[in-house]
Design a protein around this nucleic acid. Structure first.
Length: 348
DNA sequence: TCTGGGGTCCTTACGCAA
DNA sequence: TCTGTTGCGTAAGGACCC
């Protein structure tokens, strides 16, 4: 049986949640961004996007591009709450759902009698119950569905076969498809590949030589909209981290250590509340030249305790030293397992 | 005019054991 | 026993996504 997959994506999600609370802002340029000097834009309303403000634009630049925009600090608790409601509605309509982020999900529709009508009903149900609009893409795999949902935002509804997707996006830049970011796009351009058509038709041996035996074929498959990834129910979280970018760079080792331990305290607090522990403890450092460095240590016994994590991250930071002023520090616990509730139950 | 926070996955290198 | 191969765990960096 041929596959049918949908991708549903809530339009300008964070901004839309804010507009529910402040409907008087509808129609105005609205930007959700942090407040510090180094904050970036999380989401911009479509009115603000007309001024060139997009996700990841530095907030300072956004203010210059669009001085009249209303700036709102992100409220992730509210976004998580609304997301839960929406995904609940999605699950009422479809059995097999992969929640990809707060605002998007893949839906396995294979075997369904009238998938388009079902998706129309789903969008209407979300709108009626939450007031939020969504865009939908439907195709023979997750890749086509994802690109289709993006093609006519907001309130898009695009259904494509694989061949139609290839034809429609043949002239688009390779970066249109997920998995090809700025770095890969630049490397493709360096060998004269500027469109999906060119990538789809490129010599496989050249791609394999440039990008490796795995990535080369993978890039070409994506350009042809070939993809066999399954719609998988939610996977377990395997790492958690806390990090912070300073308003101004910090060189004082004592100050850095204090901040690091604060981050460790936050992280360990959250981990223990969730009953989670991990074996790999790490730190992340971003220097003033924007170079990023990580250091980690794997311990025999999974832990989420500050008494164990604190000294390890402190030692990792001391070993790294302070070769230059730092702009960011982070703490991470990876290799997470679910902590046994009963220590005595451990096998001998 | 500089570049957030929280994640996942991949690649490469290296030491060690079978 | 020596050597080479393979596989695994670990570490570090990097690309990418929302």
């Amino acid at each position: 049986m041929s596959r049918c997959v949908a991708h549903i994506d809530l339009d300008a999600f964070y901004v839309s949640v804010e507009l529910q609370r402040r409907p008087e802002l509808r129609g105005l340029p609205v930007v959700v961004a942090g407040s510090g000097p180094r904050a970036v834009v999380t989401t911009a309303s479509y009115e603000a996007r007309k001024f060139g403000v997009q996700s990841a634009t530095p907030a300072s630049r956004a203010r210059r591009l669009c001085p009249d925009a209303v700036f709102i600090s992100p409220d992730f608790a509210a976004y998580r709450e609304t997301s839960k409601r929406v995904m609940g509605i999605v699950r009422e309509h479809v059995e097999q759902v992969e929640v990809a982020s707060l605002d998007e999900a893949y839906l396995e529709l294979t075997g369904m009698a009238a998938p388009r009508a079902a998706m129309r009903r789903l969008v209407a149900a979300i709108s009626e119950s939450t007031g939020l609009s969504a865009s939908v893409g439907i195709g023979p795999n997750k890749l086509v569905a994802k690109v289709a949902s993006d093609a006519e935002k907001p309130r898009g509804f695009v259904v494509l076969t694989r061949e139609e997707a290839c034809a429609r996006f043949a002239d688009a830049r390779p970066g249109l498809v997920p998995g090809i970011g700025p770095k890969t796009a630049a490397r493709l351009e360096a060998i004269g590949i500027r469109t999906l058509r060119a990538l789809a038709a490129a010599d496989p041996s050249v791609l394999a030589e440039r990008f490796g035996a795995r990535l080369g074929p993978e890039l070409q498959a994506r350009a042809r909209f070939e993809h066999d990834g399954a719609v998988t129910e939610d996977r377990a979280v395997i790492s958690e981290s806390r990090e912070t970018t300073f308003d101004t760079d910090i060189s004082d080792p004592a100050e850095l250590e204090r901040i690091l331990l604060e981050l460790a305290e936050q992280l360990c607090g959250d981990l223990s509340r969730k009953g989670r522990r991990g074996r790999t403890i790490g730190i992340k450092i971003r220097l003033d030249d924007f170079s990023t460095h990580t250091r980690s240590r794997t311990v025999p016994e999974a832990t989420g305790d500050l008494e164990r994590v604190g000294p390890i991250v402190r030692d990792l930071l001391r070993e790294f030293g302070t070769p230059r002023p730092m702009r960011l520090l982070g703490v991470r616990v990876a290799g997470l397992e679910t902590a046994p509730t009963d220590q005595l139950a451990l096998p001998v």
